[in-house]
Amino acid sequence: MQQKILEQAEQVFAQMGFDGASVNIIAERAGVSKQNLLYYYPNKLALYKRVLDDVMGAWLQSLDALAHTGLPPAEALDAYIDAKVDFSLKRPYGSRVYALEIIGGARNYGKEIKARLVPMLHQNIATLENWMRAGLTDRVSAEHLIFAIWAATQAYADFAAQMQLVLGKKSLTAADQKAARETLKTLVKRTLKLAED
């Protein structure tokens, strides 16, 4: 029951934002009573934070693909981009909930982002800077390269509707997804002057 509540809450928060969502709507979509939902999550904020905890946990796994792989730069970046695109394609609602929280100034989940995301970001930046110092990649701003990768990969969740409108499709095909991955990998590798496959 809790998993069903979390899945429906993720969708409702993605579609309506924190302020627009209600416990009643989430309970109805999950097929449970409001009282049952409140047994597990005492209020809307607690449920919202639980959804974001789950999203953040999944997202941090994708970020880990860069910091702890021990792979050469080109392979590590490929794995990182694949993991970030996978997250956006598999958890589009989760990505949107996170994006809406950030757009709103991180007013409900800012402390958790600082505690959980920022240390991983610093590890990723350190990995890139170590490669640059060792002469394995060209020198660029590691922070802004990470931000660019995040923006590009998260667009496949947060702006999927725009892409579908532009492409005239109901959803991105496997060929579109492959093209997205390969294009992003090429852009990043060329930026860092890494050999391409």
Rank of each mutant, 00 (worst) to 15 (best):
174 A>N: 08
83 A>W: 03
63 L>H: 10
30 A>E: 08
113 I>W: 07
38 L>I: 13
179 A>M: 08
110 G>Q: 01
95 S>T: 13
115 A>M: 11
176 D>V: 05
76 A>F: 03
16 M>P: 00
187 L>I: 15
163 M>N: 00
163 M>Q: 09
15 Q>R: 11
52 L>P: 12
164 Q>K: 14
90 K>S: 15
72 P>K: 11
168 G>A: 11
173 T>M: 06
36 N>F: 13
64 D>W: 02
72 P>Y: 04
51 V>R: 07
184 L>E: 10
173 T>Y: 10
99 A>T: 05
121 L>N: 03
56 M>D: 03
180 A>V: 15
163 M>H: 05
115 A>C: 06
1 M>Y: 09
45 L>I: 13
40 Y>K: 00
192 L>V: 08
194 L>N: 13
190 R>D: 11
92 P>A: 05
36 N>P: 00
53 D>F: 14
190 R>F: 03
181 R>L: 12
185 K>V: 15
194 L>W: 14
28 E>N: 07
53 D>H: 11
173 T>P: 02
154 Q>P: 00
66 L>P: 05
170 K>C: 04
67 A>R: 01
85 V>I: 14
130 N>A: 14
196 E>F: 06
158 D>H: 04
162 Q>W: 11
197 D>K: 09
191 T>E: 12
190 R>M: 10
24 N>R: 11
66 L>D: 05
111 K>T: 15
185 K>G: 06
14 A>K: 02
71 L>S: 06
149 I>H: 00
191 T>Y: 04
169 K>W: 13
84 K>E: 07
